[in-house]
Amino acid sequence: MAATAATARGHRFGSTAHFPGLRRYVVPLGLLALWQASVGLGWISTRSIPSPGQILATFWELAASGELAMHLLVSLGRVSAGLAIGVSVGTLCALTAGLSRRGEDALDPLLQMLRTLPHLALVPLFILWFGIGETPKVALVALGTAFPIYLNLFAGIRTVDAKVVEAVSTLGLTRWELIAHVILPGALPAFLTGLRYALGVAWLSLVVGEQINASSGIGYLAMTAREFLRTDVIIVALIVYAVLGLAADQIVRLIERAALGWRPVFVKE
């Protein structure tokens, strides 16, 4: 009996072996099926949560009217702008602090203090400073994403193998060549880890930012739906957030696979 169960399990996971990406989606899809069944059998009231079928219908409705695309573009614009600023500032600070002692003394204590502050707590201050337009939303994303980039890239620069750096220093490279060929590529894995973390923070900041005085965006869509008791629209908005987050993570994974091909593969698919 136990042997049969073990074989069955082996088969189930074995069947996804040809599509390694699929294995990651088995559990979410299973939960989706359970949800549809629960609503269909009347275990859950449709007023508190609609069925996946209803949500799909609402999704098509929003997509066909162009409403979803419009809000999506606005949200993507805010995240992109915020990320661009946050990643640039974080990278610049990490390079300054990572590559020079003076830079570290100047920047690191300040940034280490600021990073302990929950950046979402700055929302009231940002509204007073920047009003209720686009600026506070972009600023919130930028502030939230700068720190993970800074922390990871700084640590990455400082942990590049000193013995390799020493050996390369005997090869007659200039300081900038050393940085470009050895130190920055060596810090790249840490940077990409920071980037994945920053993307998560970016969506989180966007959710919070868009629920305050927004007139467009996925968060606005969800907040107005609340006033009309449209749980289906709220859930469409949540799913869009989730899919966007997942897609962003996949993009970084692809970058990692392309840029870090030199690393030995420990986990065989």
Binding site: V164, P185, L188
Partner: peptide, 20 residues
């Protein structure tokens, strides 16, 4: 040449040799 090879892991062998 050191006790450890001390090659740059993210550069292919030829690029390690021609570095600098």
């Amino acid at each position: 040449v050191f006790q450890e090879p001390r090659l740059v892991p993210w550069k292919r062998v030829l690029r390690n040799v021609t570095l600098g």
